[in-house]
């Protein structure tokens, strides 16, 4: 990553969602994406927690980048990350206690997410506040998007229902199939199936889009 990002903020955000999607492209942080995604609600809350931590960490590191000594930067990154994770955990315990009971353990694990430390090290520590925020927003939304699709797919196929959060502590369960859904999909093994199938779909859509763009560029070149 260059010392000063030259791409626009919009591209910076899209980068995290599509080109460097934490789960579908980099295959990082697969542990929570399999552990908590057996209901749509849990997936959305977990993704939201990661989005919050990623943005706050990126902003904090970016603001501190000129006062952090390079030799001790990693411990300081870790302190900042764990600070924001603690804040998230406390907020969640206070505002959404029933979700916290299910995903709380994995929210604490956000400290160890490779993707968060990597963005702090590779991007936020070298860029100004706004690009860093956009980067954090992009990576976080990419993660939220991945967790939402995975949990949507898993709950729908595995339970035949969708638990949609209607507020911090309330939700509504839509039931589509009452009998015998594919139970495996909400078990841990099903998480791997779901991530694999959705990753294939994500890459397939991207490859098609890239092929289309290439064909368009070629056609534009030919008309010149």
């Amino acid at each position: 990553m260059s010392s000063h990002s030259t791409v626009s903020l919009k591209d910076q955000i899209l980068n995290g969602i599509i080109k460097e999607n934490t789960i579908f492209k980099l295959a990082l942080s697969l542990c929570p994406s399999i552990a908590v995604t057996n209901s749509l609600k849990n997936g959305i809350f977990m993704g939201g927690a990661v989005l919050f931590v990623q943005v706050m960490v990126n902003m904090t590191i970016s603001l501190m980048r000129n006062v952090i000594h390079p030799k001790v930067r990693l411990p300081i990154f870790m302190l900042v990350i764990s600070g924001w994770v603690t804040v998230t955990q406390m907020l969640m315990a206070a505002l959404a206690p029933d979700v916290n009971a299910k995903v709380g353990l994995y929210v604490a694990l956000i400290v160890a997410f490779a993707s968060i430390l990597a963005r702090a090290e590779m991007f936020a520590s070298k860029n100004r506040l706004l690009p860093s925020m956009a980067d954090g927003l992009g990576m976080g939304i990419g993660f939220l998007f991945a967790l939402t699709t995975i949990s949507f797919f898993r709950e729908l196929v595995g339970k035949g229902s969708l638990t949609v959060p209607t507020g911090l502590a309330t939700d509504h369960v839509f039931t589509f199939i009452n009998t015998r859904p594919v139970l495996l999909m909400i078990l841990p093994a099903g998480g791997f199936f779901a991530v694999g199938i959705l990753m294939a779909g994500f890459n397939w859509i991207n490859a098609r889009a890239a092929a289309k763009a290439a064909a368009k560029a070629k056609a534009a070149l030919a008309t010149h």
Partner: peptide, 10 residues
């Protein structure tokens, strides 16, 4: 195995 785990009753 997929069938046994997904539909244990049936």
């Amino acid at each position: 195995a997929f069938a046994l785990i997904s539909w244990p009753r049936a």
